[in-house]
Design a protein around this nucleic acid. Sequence first.
DNA 1: AGGTCCGATGTCAGCTTCTGACATCAGAGT
DNA 2: ACTCTGATGTCAGAAGCTGACATCGGACCT
Lengths: 188, 188
Amino acid sequence: MGRWEPDAQGRLARAAMELYIERGFDSTSVAEIAKRAGLTERTFFRHFADKREVLFGGSAGLQDLMVEAVRGAPKSAAPMAAVAAGLLATGPLFQDRREYARQRHAVIAANAELRERELIKLASLASALADALRGRGVNDPAASLSAEAGIAVFRVAFDRWIDISNKRDLTQLIRESLDELKAVTAAG
Amino acid sequence: MGRWEPDAQGRLARAAMELYIERGFDSTSVAEIAKRAGLTERTFFRHFADKREVLFGGSAGLQDLMVEAVRGAPKSAAPMAAVAAGLLATGPLFQDRREYARQRHAVIAANAELRERELIKLASLASALADALRGRGVNDPAASLSAEAGIAVFRVAFDRWIDISNKRDLTQLIRESLDELKAVTAAG
DNA sequence: AGGTCCGATGTCAGCTTCTGACATCAGAGT
DNA sequence: ACTCTGATGTCAGAAGCTGACATCGGACCT
């Protein structure tokens, strides 16, 4: 046995999530999170840059996944098709996590600061996607626009997937939203 | 003469902008801003919800302008065409403010918290646009997608307008970006 | 075995952002 | 004159976050 209980970061993340759900994000202090995890406030800030970051640890993985899929798309694929490949690659990642996604989504939706953080993560995603497209030889502004449009599609599809009345799977919803975007821009 | 110097809010905003430019956003404290404006810290927070909000006071006006233009678009206009009308309506508002826009943009770009705040303002804009479209009888997800795509276009066009090497006017850049989006989605 | 070093955590002191509660007082309205 | 309002000041304090330094089990070396 080590000097401390193992997985400090995991314990902090779980304690934080519990408290955010129990009493809301604003009403839980870092001191409380640390206490529940059996650690100190200072240690919390060694594992997470700030109180919000607890909820966004997974976003780097999502980004890598999308970027790899864009990179791996057929050379002949049009920019938007490559983006579509990126979006669709994330389906499996969320496959069995709909309930968790919904809880997390509820916590974030209830708080303006968290919504801000989520938006910047998505912006970072869009930026990474645009970079990946440029790596495929796509020029700006086509690269930026395709990436931004792709993220918009992802958001819309994800929100629909989260929606309680909706039982279709994420992949399908992404496809539908892509088609909708195509229809809408063609008609404008 | 009143009990206090007039235009407290304006003085605070100017003092803040000066300091943000001089020493960066992070390195200026609210106490300093208030001191330069000849007021107290507490008064700053009566005029601005937080330290960031100083830079985003105008966004409500922008939003109203866009929404009105979407509402006023011809009944026969397709969703994306109505959005385009909204975007193009903002051209005059920025006509003679390119230098200010550039300074403000530089301050925001240099700081993650400010970028977060900017993103949420744009998201609010997208949401208002989507509402306006629904008011025209456009259903979801077409309304959300058109609005999000419109904001993406606006961002891309605005960034290009800010770009020092670029002398074209905002309206023209918006038109070009709309066409690019159309091309890109049609090809995907 | 003994010694040394490392890295995760603790402790403490401090700054900054932001809020609530209450005081002050010029000017407007009566 | 009297009151009332609203913008500002004053004060105290919670909470987020950071730097500096201490602690000490375990890994690694000799």
